[in-house]
Design a protein around this nucleic acid. Structure first.
Lengths: 348, 348
DNA sequence: GTGAAAGCGCTAACAT
DNA sequence: ATGTTAGCGCTTTCAC
């Protein structure tokens, strides 16, 4: 880095470093002519301030971190697009940390983040564990922390969610309306907000509109195991409708149906939370609850920057709620076929 | 940040800051007992070194940047997973910059990166523009820069690619083998390495194995326009086989076929470079050339870290080439139907 | 084995 | 309008 810095510019121009520094920041105390000379040379030499020095001195890094479970998932990818837009527009840099659903990793990340690496953090929680000490410590340090999607309801931080309860109620109701008599709910974990709340929407809809017994599969944290879990569950319980609370479980359902030769939507109907770009091109097209992922990321980032800029201002404790959309596909088309027919097929 | 730092630890323990610093780094000059005391207190108080101060002093940031066109794309998402794994294992932090195919933005990012923000950079180039000054400047500063996938062949930097020529030749040959008589090639831009090389594979296969005329659609940088471009192209040229060099153009083809009622694979066969998780669930399942995205990211990151750790060592100028895989789907199944039949349908 | 002091590059309070 | 100086937290050279 022994390169062009303020000291060097100062020497070249026969000025002091403070004058150069002020000129670069367009301070009112500096004469127009000096400013011009400084800026001209800075431009010519491609001067770029050293971020470590600025951060060390100024106690701000112009950097935010995003801690998410996974990136190969269109919801999070779109959310990052939203976050990135806000960051870019405000000249913030973006650090990415992937937990892969492992809470120990999440904690490790937080411990490296709370000493001046970033000005603020956005998080969507991992599934594993329900510890919150790392969040509490963070709040004590006074570093802004905003939750999105998978939020921690216990924490007093700003949170951005979608209308998970309503959407889940609606999704379940939709399956009921198209004639499902045995509706199952697939989830990853009750540990996280979206698991719990989406389940509640499912349970209430079932209770209010049918006399079915709830049928719930809580999957494993280990993604590898879930195909077998889903398959066993479907074979054993023979649901005629599935509401999947996360995208990849819906994909596993498609895979299972392909393998054991269940016809969607004739034998079984499927609806899922999903931001798949190809949902409408699947065979059959998948009925989805699509979250406003980009908007969520954007909103979360904006609120984080607001918190960063007005330090110590009151936090928004009530979650900011954005609406998801139901997008109909053929995976939940009503069918004439009787359900006994379907049972016979399964018995073979 | 007026928090727990080395000075504070030193005061608490009645030691000097230098002793504490050395103890934390397990220096051989420090007595076992002192080390123990220091480490114990550091742990108790959750001491974490200030990264700006370390960076400023030590001229290394333990941070790398990834500059990519887009993140909502499973290839890049998987590549980041690979990069993230290497970064995490080596305690590096990961900055993400999205160019959205805009070279001006790419340049802006590079200018903020070359003064001590990062120890190295990974890049997959944007489509727009063919300027390389920002790369050259970077090389002059001596900061390691590694290209992956969309590489710049002119630059002497380390590059990681897939066997794009061979894969494209193979993909084209596959369409020929299943009976296509009019094969089109869809690309985003000749400006980037993968565009040019994949086109060459297509052209050579066509030349060596058929007497067809090449039929190429170079799409727009503006993603919004491409649906119409693809539609017009297909309607006008009536290809019976399409080789798409990027995933999202294949998706547009599916959308177009749906709209104008062309049956895949009967009327038109489609093969595409793609890392779609749902390729096998599409209607019909898509034949893909799948790149080893995770492995590419991992390899690129490893080579970058190697370059960072052995500064000034010789660069690897020849691209490191990883192999893609052909995954057969029904979108290129051979059909008995005659091509004249198809033409009649289109005329209607 | 430990301490004192300098300095990484920048900014801001305090001169003048 | 410009200069001097101190200090952000850390590491390292040089003393002892």
């Amino acid at each position: 880095m022994g390169d062009v810095n303020i000291k060097f510019l100062a020497k070249e121009l026969n000025l002091s470093t403070s004058t150069v520094s002020r000129a670069l920041k367009d301070s009112y105390e500096i004469s127009a002519e000096t400013k011009m000379r400084v800026l001209a040379l800075a431009k010519k030499l491609n001067y770029e301030p050293n971020p470590s020095a600025s951060s060390l001195r100024g106690q701000k890094t112009k950097t935010i971190a995003v801690v998410i479970p996974e990136i190969s998932n269109n919801f999070f990818a779109l959310a990052i697009n939203g976050i990135e837009k806000v960051a870019r527009e405000n000249n913030y840099h973006l650090l990415i940390y992937l937990t892969h659903e492992n809470q120990e990793r999440e904690k490790t990340y937080f411990s490296t983040l709370y000493n001046g690496r970033v000005d603020g953090v956005l998080i969507s929680m991992s599934v594993q564990g329900s510890d919150t000490v790392h969040f509490e410590e963070f709040n004590q340090k006074g570093i802004p922390l905003v939750f999105f999607d998978r939020v921690c309801l216990k924490m007093p931080n700003t949170k951005i969610t979608t209308d998970d309860y309503d959407s889940s109620y609606l999704a379940t109701k939709h399956l009921i309306d198209v004639g499902c008599k045995k509706i199952a709910f697939l989830m990853i974990s009750k540990n996280i907000s979206i698991g719990e709340i989406r389940m509640k929407g499912y349970l209430d809809a079932i209770k209010n509109h049918t006399n079915q017994n709830p049928l719930i599969l809580e999957c494993s944290n280990d993604i590898e195991e879930n195909y077998e879990l889903v398959k066993t569950f479907i074979v054993k319980n023979k649901p005629d409708g599935i509401f999947s609370s996360v995208e990849y479980l819906a994909i596993e359902c498609y895979n299972v149906c392909k393998e054991i030769n269940l016809k969607i939507p004739d034998d079984i109907k499927i609806i899922s939370f999903s931001n798949l770009q190809t949902a409408h091109l699947l065979n059959p097209s998948l009925t989805t609850i699509a979250q406003p992922a980009f908007n969520m990321g954007q909103t979360a980032a904006k609120l984080l920057l607001t918190a960063i800029n007005k330090k110590g201002t009151s936090k928004i404790t009530e979650p900011v709620v954005l609406k998801s959309r139901l997008i109909l596909g053929n995976s939940t088309s009503p069918t004439a076929r009787s359900s006994s027919n379907r049972r016979n097929r399964l018995r073979k």
